[in-house]
């Protein structure tokens, strides 16, 4: 088992708007010294509520924002030390799936165009067979490439978003609340699809959600966050069977366990 992502004591602070002229503005610690490692092909779930820092952590792993301290290594490379063009090339290897299946596709573009978007960064010509292959892998038809996003249901759009994420054959997928907006029966279909694709393509996944039941169904490892702090980190089975923290217990109650 080789390490793919290594996050070492990463912190991120936000300066709040200044409320008093003479007082220093408040500083909000979004992520406080978070650490984890993610092996190739494995799945780490990050659970927490809004404001827990889980999305900020995901954004730092995706190199959308830089940590104030600590380091994030992807396949041994510190991604926040890379130059802009090196980082753009590196992005082929880690892709993201978003929460809102209605917002993550440009409404004015055919879905084939959107799916091929990551390929265009490195290819001058986009090979149509790759788009078709990605569409079929997520359970849609190659002919769907010529349709617009509004012609699809929420679950189908999430499949399209997944097709875009896997079209470059990445090593890592970051899924930020990727099934939270979906109906229960659609949710199960998408979770199964993600598991199938992982097994088929050897993808590692960082799965972020507020719903412990969803995370429990797909993750090997679990990291529970609250107010930017890591409360628990370890094997999913162990944390779910013997939660060490009251907060984790309350999440279990809410998930209907």
């Amino acid at each position: 088992m080789t390490t793919l992502v290594e996050v070492k004591s990463v912190s991120r602070h936000y300066r709040m708007p200044r409320e008093h002229l003479l007082r220093a503005p408040e500083v909000l610690t979004a992520v406080n010294s978070a650490s984890f490692t993610l092996n190739r092909g494995e799945t780490l779930g990050i659970v927490g509520e809004s404001g827990s820092g889980k999305s900020t952590l995901a954004r730092m792993v995706m190199a959308f924002e830089a940590p104030d301290s600590g380091e994030i290594r992807f396949d041994g490379t510190d991604i926040h030390a890379l130059g802009a063009s090196d980082l753009r090339r590196m992005r082929q290897r880690f892709q993201m799936i978003f929460q809102d299946p209605f917002g993550s596709l440009d409404p004015r573009r055919k879905i084939g165009w959107s799916i091929a978007e990551p390929l265009r960064v490195t290819h001058a010509e986009t090979p149509a067979h790759k788009t078709a292959e990605a569409l079929e892998q997520v359970g849609l038809r190659a002919a769907d490439a010529d349709k617009y996003p509004h012609e699809f249901s929420g679950g189908q759009r999430q499949r399209i978003a997944i097709a875009r994420a896997i079209v470059t054959r990445p090593d890592l997928i970051v899924a930020d609340e990727a099934v939270s907006a979906l109906d229960v029966s659609v949710q199960a279909q998408i979770l199964n699809l993600l598991m199938d694709l992982q097994d088929e393509l050897g993808l590692a996944m960082l799965f972020i959600s507020h719903d412990l039941a969803v995370v429990a169904s797909i993750c090997d490892q679990l990291l529970v966050m609250q107010h930017g702090k890591t409360l628990e980190y370890g094997a999913a089975t162990q944390i779910l069977n013997a939660p060490a923290h009251d907060y984790t217990k309350s999440l279990l109650t809410a998930a209907g366990a």
């Binding site: 199960a188 097994d199 039941a213 429990a216 169904s217 779910l240 999440l251 209907g256």
Partner: peptide, 25 residues
């Protein structure tokens, strides 16, 4: 189809078990 928040279910081969689904849309 609703996952339960108990430990990660495994199938006979030790792989993650798939959730039961309702086919179609």
């Amino acid at each position: 189809a609703r996952p339960s928040a108990t430990s990660l279910p495994r199938d006979a081969n030790g792989k993650r078990a798939r959730l039961p689904t309702i086919p179609g849309t």
